[in-house]
Simulated assay, not measured.
Amino acid sequence: GGPRLLYALQNSHGFASVSTVLRKQPIPRLLPSIGTPERKEIDSNISSFFAPEIKLAPSYPGCSEPPGNTLMVDGVAIEPKCRFCYRRNAILGLCREHAKHVNTQVNSVESVDLVRSALAETDKDSGTRVCFGTDATVVAVAPFCNEEHYTAIPIVVSPTDKTESAEDFVKWLRVVLEAWKEHPEGEALHGPIWRIASDGDSIFRLAKFILCMTQEI
């Protein structure tokens, strides 16, 4: 797959080249979180994936407001290693639970060495220890009733070592909900969040309870 397959199809069947595809059809890029997901990262991803030129707003004949969406949360396995984010000149791949212990900006060889040393730290109680993310928490938005554009769209991807508490998880999940509600290309164009869905992970279940069971009906 990828560019090599497209190159082969270009020569065999006259398909458009990679440069032509990129020029004519912008491909949105998901901005991973360096540490705990931040509002600016979430806003950037909503802008990238839900802009009108990328994803059409749902049509809802007979309704005065857009239909709602499901906020989907799940974990996916990732390769535990560091990567370089050229857009932010920063190191990716550290778990969000400990990334705050180091400076993830690539300012010099010494700054990279400090991260390497923190990864090699064996004392789990050390205030400088960091570790790789082994899973990535993915948060996506999927429409309830939109047959034309039904695909779930990610707005957060954040590495974790799975030691995060439900209370800490809820803190940044509230930021996600707030960002969707206030972003001009979020709820205003594509409808509100009606439901939060996840798998059977115990942290996700407790987080949903904390977040949703707050008022007596």
Rank of each mutant, 00 (worst) to 15 (best):
P184N: 12
R23C: 09
P192I: 13
R116E: 09
G127W: 01
S17P: 07
D135M: 09
Q10F: 08
L206G: 01
S12D: 07
A207L: 06
Y150Q: 09
S198N: 06
G35H: 04
K81I: 00
T160K: 12
D113T: 13
R39L: 15
Y86Q: 06
H183M: 04
E187T: 09
S202W: 00
V109P: 00
N89E: 10
A179M: 04
G1R: 02
L9A: 03
F50A: 04
D135P: 00
T20Q: 15
G93L: 03
C145V: 04
K181R: 15
D123I: 02
K55L: 15
E148K: 13
K171G: 03
I34Y: 13
T134A: 05
W194D: 09
N146M: 07
G133H: 11
T104N: 08
E147M: 10
P159W: 03
A99R: 11
P52T: 03
R205E: 09
P3E: 05
E41H: 14
E53K: 12
H190K: 05
N11M: 07
N146C: 15
P28V: 04
E182Q: 14
T134L: 02
F49C: 07
E164L: 11
P32H: 07
A140T: 10
A140W: 01
L31H: 11
E147I: 14
Y86K: 07
I153E: 03
S47N: 14
T163C: 04
C95Y: 03
S198G: 15
K208D: 00
E53C: 02
A166C: 08
V106A: 04
D113K: 15
I27Q: 14
L56Q: 13
V139P: 00
F169C: 11
G133P: 00
T70C: 11
I91M: 08
Y7H: 12
D113P: 01
P66F: 04
S64I: 02
Y60L: 09
D125P: 00
R39I: 12
V176N: 07
E148R: 11
E53M: 04
N107D: 04
D125A: 06
F84K: 04
Y60P: 02
N103F: 03
I193W: 08
T70D: 13
E187F: 00
L94P: 00
T151Q: 05
I193K: 13
R116F: 11
Y150K: 13
K24T: 06
V102A: 02
S64C: 05
N11G: 09
G133N: 06
A16K: 15
A16L: 10
A51R: 08
A142N: 00
C212M: 10
L177Y: 03
A90P: 00
M72C: 10
S44M: 03
E147Q: 13
S19H: 10
K55M: 10
M213W: 08
S108C: 10
P184H: 12
D74S: 10
Q105F: 05
R4C: 08
V102I: 05
G35P: 06
I210T: 09
T134V: 15
I46F: 05
D199P: 15
D113N: 14
L119C: 11
P26F: 05
R83S: 14
D74W: 04
L30T: 09
K100N: 06
I196V: 15
N45L: 04
E148Y: 05
K171P: 01
I217D: 09
L9N: 06
Y7E: 12
N45K: 11
C82M: 14
C85A: 15
N103K: 08
W194V: 01
K81F: 05
D161M: 06
P32G: 11
A142Q: 11
G14I: 01
A90Y: 00
